[in-house]
Nucleic acid binder design. Structure first.
Lengths: 344, 344
DNA sequence: TTGTAGGCGTTATCAA
DNA sequence: TTGATAACGCCTACAA
């Protein structure tokens, strides 16, 4: 254990220190450091050696101010609490880092004022672009992008925004295919535990569910739709309410995997077996889905691709290119063991 | 859908634009904006109004360069893939934001070179402090802190470091109390699925497990220790190997909850019931633990407190105060349904 | 191939 | 109470 260290802000090594040591001008040092062609190899080598020896680290701050480019982007997410949200950071950060960008991360908690303030802060930091996951600013986004003159890419906005630069999964299609899977298994009493009605994904997935029923001539029964919270709690409460129905469902299309986790839990509490008595389909395919009991059949959303497309889109915009946009990624049904044919 | 927008980098509004509009000097504008006392209230009001109207947003970059303070910190984590890692971001970001700080987030993937490079990048960005979660730089940390002159706070380092500013859970104590709980339930054949041996938490928890056995006169059997990977895979493989033993264990202390998830899965595959045939204790108490089947008994680690202490420690250091350090947080046993008394 | 000078947007230090 | 003027550390013309 070291004793109470006093961390003293040792003076940074700057280029003019190097210039003095090397007996050249600032410009020359700058040239060497950014390996420009117009400098004598020997001079460069000498300067580099000195810089190395002095432990010089360029000041990104000063560079940003002078060069007008900060090589930073801002990433606003709703929260870090669930697996889906957490996973999205990875591809974005990796890509950013590979391109020499650093990323500011902030949370907006699905509150408009908070999100606005986060974006404003990013702007004050001169980020070159922003990615907002689960944005709640809706139509304000295009205007903000316009007024700040900085590209904004949205991933799965919570509030529908006619913003061009958006990347999202095919919510409607995914929920529809999940529901159709249950129909193929012979189920007719199929329930849905959704996300709050004010969220776009919540509505879209609900629509997908309804469309599947309609397409197969199954009457729509509002009793079978429960508004959850996209978390375990909603799933657990929802399934218990649905199971208490006179004509209880035999299958369940969940808003997401977290909801499904709650459903499995709630079903267990009521002594209902999955999949024997109740078939369950999730949405997302979070890493844990395959380890649940039973392993969860779900609609996979490729989070890595989501993030990858978003960051590529952003970098295209930063480079002044017009990317293909918007992007809607298809989902895929992953069959595991939480669904069974309906027993007549 | 808006048409192909050309995002043009609209010129930023700067203070000298405001100065011109207001017919005052730069200095005066600066004073108004930072509401200093030495300015006439009317002047201030007028300037503020103009700034507002022009949509002025201060340039944090320029401020940083001039004022020597960037109000940023760097946060390096191993990855965002698991719940534990993801959760740690929240308290840190919240606290930072509340103090007017912005945070750079990067991943180091438990690779020393990568971590070093991340910290170096933070340094080049002039962060005022850094938090490293699951650091693998060990003894290099104090030296780095010294040479950069910037405080570094470690959370649960993977490699043991005699760094003063460290916050971690009581790994040894937690694993020991979990194991003792199993002993109290009457178990004698208690296995352990640990993390890789090169990690400090892995070794500490293993020690805790061994200490519990010793204290209760239970002979130590190397056969009962399996080196996992702190993930589901390790748990699943581990439990299957352990269950195949001639004298199989009746209880299992896991390195963490993810491992336990794999254990539950593996046990199911082998048709072994939890807790009837096998008692399982996890570590961490991730949000999902209570929703597992059976709900997982585990050693809770207060992640929020971990992050909270770390960020407070960092801000104290930034403010030039010497914080109480290091900090080791006690864990608490959470009894749920994955453990049962041993049946003779 | 190298150096000089000006500027990036603010804050800080003096004077006035 | 206000205003010049010099940093902050670096980059980019433009000259030499």
């Amino acid at each position: 254990m070291t004793g109470p260290t006093t961390i003293r802000q040792s003076r940074r090594v700057t280029i003019d220190r190097i210039a003095r040591e090397a007996g050249v001008s600032l410009t020359t040092v700058s040239r060497a450091l950014n390996d420009r062609p117009d400098i004598h190899p020997d001079t460069r080598a000498r300067i580099l050696a000195i810089a190395q020896e002095l432990g010089y680290t360029p000041s990104a701050i000063a560079r940003s101010l002078a060069g007008q480019r900060t090589h930073t982007i801002g990433l606003a997410v709703r929260t870090h609490l669930d697996a889906w949200a957490a996973q999205i950071l990875l591809p974005i950060e990796e890509a950013a880092r590979d391109s020499g960008y650093e990323v500011f991360v902030s949370t907006h908690h699905a509150e408009a004022e908070r999100e606005r303030s986060v974006l404003r802060t990013f702007y004050s930091r001169h980020v070159e672009g922003m990615v907002v996951v689960s944005s709640v600013l809706g139509e304000d986004i295009p205007a903000l992008q316009e007024s700040m003159g900085i590209p904004i890419v949205l991933i799965s906005p919570l509030i529908q925004a006619s913003h061009r630069y958006t990347v999202q999964a095919h919510d409607y299609g995914g929920a529809r295919s999940g529901t159709e899977y249950l129909i193929r298994l012979g189920h007719r009493r199929i329930a849905h535990i959704g996300a709050p009605e004010w969220t776009a994904p919540g509505r879209d997935r609900l629509q997908g569910y309804r469309a599947a029923l309609e397409a197969h001539g199954i009457p729509w029964d509002p009793e079978l739709v429960f508004e959850g919270d996209a978390h375990e709690t909603g799933g657990s409460e929802g399934v218990q309410a649905l199971l208490a129905l006179a004509d209880a469902p035999t299958a369940l299309m969940c808003f997401n995997d977290l909801t499904a986790v709650g459903v499995l839990h709630g079903a267990r509490i009521r002594g209902v077996r999955v999949p024997e008595d109740l078939s369950v389909v999730g949405f997302d395919d979070v890493p844990l889905a395959k380890y649940l009991d039973p392993p969860l059949s779900t609609i996979r959303q490729d989070v890595e691709a989501l993030g990858g497309h978003a960051i590529r889109m952003l970098f295209a915009l930063i480079a002044g290119r017009e990317p293909q946009a918007p992007i809607v990624l298809d989902t895929v049904l992953v069959e595991r063991l939480s669904c069974a044919p309906r027993v007549a």
